[in-house]
């Protein structure tokens, strides 16, 4: 049994147009992905692809007008999407924890850092304050906060962005989660600080035997910190597999375009791909969601593309998969 298995997840936004007629934006259109224990999975794709929405659905954080249309998200065999609020609350922040993009806004500005780490422990287990405080100090030391005893007494505004991000990681680890979901955990941090935070996050994940689902725009982060990658376009995972295979021989035309767009590839003499417009979620094309932008689309692409297995664990959703061998060579 996989630790996490998302199956055929569909989420729509239902609203009205200017004339009051109902319109549906199909934001997630059958997302499926699996994550094994101890694995680090990177979820990539252009802005608006549905990456954050996928984890929101998973964590039970969808709010109207978002509507879960169908799908399952099995965590250790239990469907998260069918749990009631109380049961979800027991999992969130404990067995599953989350690190979000903006550390400053996800910390309580008027509460000491140490107290915030105490509260998250006490919310899930009957631990004494003294015991929870000791663990808070331990965790702060673990995430590289020097002089943790004293810094635990500080308030969030006294921390730099990189420091605050480390505090969030400490909080995410507090209840020994089995799954950590990180939505752009280092966006906005400087390269050297980003490296400090990612090293920390992945080594802690490894030590604790937890799994990591990380959302990022940065292809380099996936290349160096993840085992597997899932590529998303218009609410569909169009390609997934081991990082070395997907990046070494991308098979889906969108993955190929995404990788060709890095400065490194352009420098190597590659031609920058045509960008094209973002997909219109209210009027997605029939068949393949990428067909409006795909350079090799033909008539067959107006029907649902098949899931093609390319190698063990490497698959792409396309009528005309053509692995681009040694794409990065």
């Amino acid at each position: 049994m996989s630790l996490l298995s998302i199956e055929d997840l569909h989420v729509h936004f239902v609203g009205e147009d200017r004339l009051g007629r109902p319109v549906t934006a199909r934001a997630l259109n059958g997302v499926s992905l699996t994550l094994e224990q101890g694995e680090r999975l990177g979820l990539v794709g252009e802005t608006g692809a549905g990456k954050s929405l996928t984890v929101q659905a998973l964590m039970g954080l969808l709010r109207a007008p978002a509507r879960l249309v169908r799908g399952r998200a099995l965590f250790e065999g239990v469907d998260l999407l069918a749990l009631d609020e109380a049961k979800l609350n027991r999992l969130r922040g404990a067995a599953i924890s989350m690190v979000v993009q903006s550390p400053k806004t996800s910390l309580d500005p008027v509460r000491r850092i140490g107290d915030q780490i105490v509260r998250i422990q006490q919310a899930h287990a009957p631990v004494s304050r003294a015991q929870a405080w000791r663990r808070a100090i331990d965790l702060l030391e673990k995430v590289g906060v020097a002089d943790a005893e004293r810094r635990a007494m500080a308030y969030p505004h006294q921390f730099s962005g990189g420091m605050a991000q480390r505090v969030l990681i400490a909080m995410a680890l507090a209840n020994r989660p089995r799954l950590i979901v990180a939505d752009e955990p280092t966006t906005g941090l400087d390269a050297t600080v980003q490296a400090q935070v990612l090293d920390l996050l992945t080594s802690l994940v490894r030590e604790e035997g937890a799994s990591l689902l990380v959302i990022t725009h940065d292809i380099g982060v996936v290349a160096h910190y993840c085992d597997k990658v899932a590529v998303m376009f218009a609410g569909v995972i169009v390609e997934s597999g081991p990082v070395e295979q997907v990046f070494g021989a991308p098979a889906h035309p969108y993955t190929q375009a995404l990788l060709a767009a890095t400065p490194e590839r352009i420098e190597a003499g590659g031609k920058a791909p045509r960008a094209g417009l973002p997909p219109n979620l209210r009027a997605l094309p029939e068949g393949c969601v990428y067909s409006d932008r795909c350079p090799i689309a033909d008539a067959s692409c107006r029907t649902e593309p098949p899931q093609r297995l390319l190698a063990l664990g490497h698959q792409a959703l396309c009528h005309h998969v053509a692995p681009q061998r040694e794409a990065l060579a």
Partner: peptide
């Protein structure tokens, strides 16, 4: 600290 998009490219990292 710069992460190249090529997973095979080994980095000499300065922590």
């Amino acid at each position: 600290a710069h992460l190249s998009p090529d997973p095979r490219q080994r980095r000499r990292r300065i922590l």
